[in-house]
Simulated scan of single mutants.
Amino acid sequence: MTQLTLKVEGMSCGHCVNSVEGAVKGLGASAKVDLRSGLVTVDYDAAQLSADAIKAAIEDQGYDVV
Protein backbone atom coordinates (compact mmCIF):
# COMPACT_ATOMS: atom_id res chain seq x y z
CA MET A 1 0.00 0.00 0.00
CA THR A 2 1.03 3.54 -0.73
CA GLN A 3 0.09 6.50 1.43
CA LEU A 4 -0.51 9.97 0.00
CA THR A 5 -1.25 13.12 2.01
CA LEU A 6 -2.97 15.95 0.18
CA LYS A 7 -3.77 19.52 1.21
CA VAL A 8 -7.39 20.14 0.24
CA GLU A 9 -9.10 23.52 0.42
CA GLY A 10 -12.83 24.15 0.73
CA MET A 11 -13.73 21.45 3.27
CA SER A 12 -15.62 22.75 6.31
CA CYS A 13 -18.16 20.20 7.58
CA GLY A 14 -19.19 16.58 7.90
CA HIS A 15 -20.75 16.61 4.45
CA CYS A 16 -17.37 17.60 3.02
CA VAL A 17 -15.71 14.70 4.83
CA ASN A 18 -18.30 12.27 3.47
CA SER A 19 -17.93 13.64 -0.07
CA VAL A 20 -14.16 13.33 -0.15
CA GLU A 21 -13.99 9.96 1.60
CA GLY A 22 -16.78 8.61 -0.63
CA ALA A 23 -15.07 9.79 -3.82
CA VAL A 24 -11.81 8.11 -2.83
CA LYS A 25 -13.59 4.94 -1.71
CA GLY A 26 -15.28 4.78 -5.11
CA LEU A 27 -11.81 4.43 -6.63
CA GLY A 28 -10.99 1.46 -4.42
CA ALA A 29 -8.87 3.36 -1.89
CA SER A 30 -9.47 4.65 1.62
CA ALA A 31 -9.18 8.21 2.91
CA LYS A 32 -9.12 9.95 6.25
CA VAL A 33 -10.00 13.65 6.34
CA ASP A 34 -8.73 16.05 9.00
CA LEU A 35 -10.93 19.15 8.70
CA ARG A 36 -8.85 21.21 11.11
CA SER A 37 -5.65 20.91 9.09
CA GLY A 38 -7.30 20.47 5.68
CA LEU A 39 -5.33 17.30 5.07
CA VAL A 40 -6.58 14.14 3.42
CA THR A 41 -4.56 10.96 3.91
CA VAL A 42 -5.18 8.31 1.28
CA ASP A 43 -4.09 4.66 1.38
CA TYR A 44 -4.12 3.05 -2.06
CA ASP A 45 -2.54 0.41 -4.28
CA ALA A 46 -0.20 2.31 -6.61
CA ALA A 47 -0.31 -0.58 -9.07
CA GLN A 48 -4.05 -0.08 -9.50
CA LEU A 49 -4.53 3.66 -9.02
CA SER A 50 -2.58 6.87 -9.65
CA ALA A 51 -2.21 9.92 -7.43
CA ASP A 52 -3.57 12.03 -10.30
CA ALA A 53 -6.79 9.96 -10.37
CA ILE A 54 -7.23 10.49 -6.62
CA LYS A 55 -6.70 14.24 -6.97
CA ALA A 56 -9.16 14.38 -9.87
CA ALA A 57 -11.83 12.50 -7.89
CA ILE A 58 -11.51 14.97 -5.00
CA GLU A 59 -11.59 17.96 -7.34
CA ASP A 60 -14.69 16.52 -9.05
CA GLN A 61 -16.43 16.91 -5.67
CA GLY A 62 -15.76 20.66 -5.80
CA TYR A 63 -12.64 20.93 -3.63
CA ASP A 64 -9.21 22.26 -4.51
CA VAL A 65 -6.17 20.02 -4.11
CA VAL A 66 -3.19 22.32 -3.58
Rank of each mutant, 00 (worst) to 15 (best):
Q3M: 12
T5L: 05
T5Q: 11
K7Y: 13
V8P: 07
C13E: 02
C13A: 04
C16V: 14
V17G: 09
V17S: 11
V20L: 13
E21A: 11
E21G: 14
E21M: 09
A23S: 10
A23M: 05
K25V: 12
K25Y: 09
K25D: 15
G26D: 05
G26T: 05
L27P: 11
G28D: 02
G28M: 03
G28C: 08
A29Y: 06
A29V: 07
A29G: 09
S30Y: 12
S30C: 07
K32I: 15
D34R: 07
S37G: 08
G38W: 10
G38K: 04
L39A: 14
V40I: 13
T41F: 07
T41G: 10
V42W: 07
V42L: 08
D43R: 11
D43W: 02
Y44D: 02
Y44M: 04
D45V: 02
Q48V: 06
Q48E: 13
L49S: 03
L49F: 01
L49E: 05
S50Q: 00
S50W: 00
A51M: 00
A51F: 00
D52H: 00
D52T: 11
A53K: 08
A53E: 10
I54G: 01
A56Q: 14
A56Y: 00
A56S: 14
I58A: 04
I58Y: 12
